[in-house]
């Protein structure tokens, strides 16, 4: 089901695709961008200090809405999601730049290239493989709905 996109969103996504093809972010490749509004990114686990994810490969889904880039896209890890204190088992990610609103850190100047690099460095800086507190309860409560509907608390900057 192809969404109808504003021409702004369409051109912007097209430009990002072109840019991505020319210089893909380190350790990442695009598995699918069909339709253009739904990307699947394959991410090689980063080396990092502790090599926690070094031998793993993850997949991310990025869904763009009509209001992109004013609204951030939906970004989730596909199962199996990395085991990380800021990533829930259903793939939802607690990272401020993925969300707009009061305490969100989204900016329309962010590109998907920058976003996946931030996610990769979030993995790289992890010191232990641990699920977020209340993971099972959270996943049972929100299921597969958009992570943007959750109320996120980002004050915990440490991993």
């Amino acid at each position: 089901m192809a969404k109808t996109l504003s021409s702004v969103a369409q051109r912007r996504i097209q430009s990002e695709l072109t840019e991505w093809m020319r210089s893909p972010p380190e350790g990442c490749c695009l598995e699918s961008c069909e339709p253009m509004t739904s990307w699947v990114v394959v991410m090689q686990g980063p080396e990092g200090h502790s090599r926690l994810y070094a031998d793993e490969v993850f997949r991310l889904r990025i869904d763009f809405g009509e209001q992109y880039p004013l609204d951030p896209p939906d970004v989730v890890f596909l199962a199996p999601a990395p085991i990380h204190p800021h990533i829930y088992s259903n793939g939802h990610i607690c990272l401020d730049i993925l969300y707009s609103g009061n305490n969100g850190g989204w900016s329309p100047a962010l590109t998907m290239s920058k976003v996946v690099l931030s996610l990769r460095s979030m993995l790289a800086s992890a010191t232990e493989k641990k699920k977020p507190p209340g993971d099972a309860e959270y996943c049972a409560r929100v299921g597969n709905r958009s992570p943007k509907l959750s109320r996120w608390q980002f004050e915990d900057d440490k991993v």
Binding site: V8, Q67, L70, S100, W106, S107, P108, A109
Partner: peptide, 18 residues
């Protein structure tokens, strides 16, 4: 137009420097 829309809908900050 893009900046004005950003200021109105996303927030009152510079999109790059915040």
């Amino acid at each position: 137009t893009a900046l004005l829309e950003h200021l109105k809908k996303v927030g009152r900050f510079d999109p790059i420097t915040r």
